[in-house]
Simulated assay, not measured.
Amino acid sequence: MTGPATSSLAADPPAAQQPDWPDRAALHAVAADLAARPALVSAAECDLLRSRLAEVACGAAVTLQGGDCAETFDGTTPERIESTYRTIRQMAAVVSGGAALPVVQLGRMAGQYAKPRSRPDETRDGVTLPAYRGDLVNGLEFTMSSRVPAPDRLRRGYERAAGTLEILRGLAAERGGAFFTAHEALVLEYERALTRDTPSGVYDLSAHLVWIGERTRQLDGAHLDFVAGVRNPVAVKLGPSSTPDDALALIDLLDPDREPGRLTFIARMGAGAVREVLPDLVAKVTASGARVVWVCDPMHGNTVTAPSGHKTRWLIDVLDEIKGFFEVHRSLGTHPGGVHLELSGEHVTECVGGTYEVLPAQVPDRYESACDPRLNRGQALDLAFELAELYAGRPTGGL
C-alpha cells in the first residue's frame, strides 16, 4: 500500500458488504477528490492512541468507546455532538474513579456513517428496494431515488466528519484531555481514499482507530487485507461463533510483531453466550503471548423486539453481558479492558430500563436511531456507575 494514489476501486481480494455503485465513473472521481484533500486526523494522533491502548493492554488503563449506531448527516449538529461528547466524558470520570485508572476515550463519531446489513434489500408493503446502508451510501427514506447508492455521499461524509472533528477538538481543548475517534472501516472506497503514506508509515487518516466487523472479518477478504497494511490501532469484532483459531489467525495477520496497543478484540457475544464462549478465546490468546486489548460490546448480542415492533435492548441484559465479561477476565487473571457502547447524549427511548425507567410501551416515544437502539444519557451514566463498581471489585446494585 502506497498512500493516496492507492485509491484503487478494484476489490481484490473479495470485499463483503460493499454497495452496488451504479455510476463507477462518478465513484472514481469522488475517490480521487478525497485522496487529494487534507487528512482528517494525523499520524501522530494515531500513534498517541496506540500508546494509550498499549497501557490498556498492559492493565494500566481502561477504554470507553461510545456513540451512535449510525451517524446521520442531519444528526451531526453542534448540540448533539457536544451532548455525546459530554456524556462520554462524564462516564469516563465515573469509571476512572472506580477503576483508579485513566480512561482512554473514543467516540463512534466523525465517520460512523455506514452499516453492514444482513440482507441487500428491504421489502415494505410489497415494494422491494435496496437496504439502507448508512448515509455514506444511501438515504433512509424508503424511495428508489433515496436508496440508490450515490458516490457524492462519500464527499459529504468527509465534510461532515471534518466539521465534527473541528467541534470535538474545540471541546477537548476547553476541557483538557485527549479524545479520539473510531468507526467501522466498511466502505473501502472511502477508507482507501483517506489513506496516506507518511514518514511514520501508511495510515488510514479517516479516524484514529478503525475496526472490522463480524460480517467482514474474512481472513482472505479485502477488509482485513486493508487494515493489515495501515499503522493505526485497529480492532476486530468477535461474535459467539468465533473460535480461538480465528483469534490467533487474526493476531498473526494484524499484529505479527505482538505490539501492545495495535490490536483490540471487541467481544460481542450476547448475555447468554459470553460466559461460555469468551473464556477459551481469552485463555488461548493469552497463552500465545499476544497483548491485545479486550473490550466488551454488550449491545449487538442483546437485541430484541419491543411490542411496537421496534428493535430494542434491555439495560439489564447489557449489564449482564458486561458482568459476564468481567467474570471471565477475573477468573483468568486477565484485564477487562473496557466497553464499546451504542449511546446518545439525548433523552431517547430506544432501550428499556434505567434509573429513569423507559418502559417497553415507551420505546416508540423518542426512537430516533437510523439503525439500532442506543442507550440514552441517563442509561449510559447508570452503566458507568455499574462499571465503576465492577472495576472496584464491589457488588453491583443491578439496574
Rank of each mutant, 00 (worst) to 15 (best):
Pro13Glu: 08
Ala16Gly: 10
Trp21Pro: 03
Ala29Cys: 03
Ala35Thr: 06
Ala39Trp: 10
Ala44Pro: 13
Leu48Arg: 11
Ala54Met: 10
Glu55Gly: 06
Val56Asn: 10
Gly59Arg: 05
Gln65Met: 11
Asp68His: 09
Asp68Met: 04
Gly75Gln: 00
Thr77Ile: 10
Glu79Leu: 13
Arg86Thr: 15
Thr87Glu: 00
Thr87Val: 13
Met91Cys: 06
Ala93His: 15
Leu101Val: 10
Pro102Gly: 15
Leu106Ala: 09
Leu106Phe: 02
Ala110Glu: 07
Gln112Trp: 08
Ser118His: 05
Arg119Phe: 13
Thr123Ala: 10
Val137Cys: 06
Arg155Ala: 05
Ala162Ile: 03
Leu165Met: 14
Gly170Glu: 13
Gly176Asn: 06
Gly177Met: 06
Gly177Arg: 06
Phe180Tyr: 14
Glu189Tyr: 08
Thr195Ile: 05
Arg196Ile: 07
Pro199Gly: 01
Gly201Phe: 08
Val202Ser: 04
Val202Arg: 12
Asp204Leu: 07
Asp204Glu: 15
Thr216Ser: 15
Arg217Tyr: 02
Asp220Lys: 00
Asp220Val: 02
Ala222Gly: 10
Ala222Val: 11
Asp225Cys: 11
Val227Ile: 12
Val230Ser: 03
Arg231Pro: 13
Val234His: 13
Leu238Val: 00
Pro240Cys: 05
Asp246Leu: 04
Leu253Ser: 15
Asp257Lys: 06
Arg258Ser: 14
Arg258Cys: 09
Arg258Gln: 01
Glu259Pro: 15
Arg262Ser: 12
Arg262Gly: 11
Arg262Thr: 02
Arg268Leu: 05
Arg268Gln: 11
Met269Gln: 11
Gly272Asn: 13
Leu278Cys: 10
Pro279Lys: 15
Leu281Lys: 13
Ser288Cys: 14
Arg291Lys: 10
Val293His: 02
Ser308Trp: 12
Trp314Lys: 12
Ile316Ser: 09
Asp317Gln: 11
Val318Gln: 01
Val318Trp: 02
Leu319Met: 07
Ile322Pro: 00
Gly324Tyr: 05
Gly324Ile: 14
Phe325Thr: 04
Glu327Tyr: 03
Val328Met: 06
Ser331Ile: 09
Thr334Leu: 04
Thr334Asn: 06
Thr334Ala: 12
Pro336Lys: 09
Leu343Glu: 11
Gly353Glu: 03
Gly353Val: 02
Val358Phe: 05
Pro360Phe: 14
Ala361Lys: 01
Gln379Cys: 15
Ala380Val: 11
Leu381Met: 14
Phe385Ser: 13
Phe385Ile: 09
Glu386Phe: 11
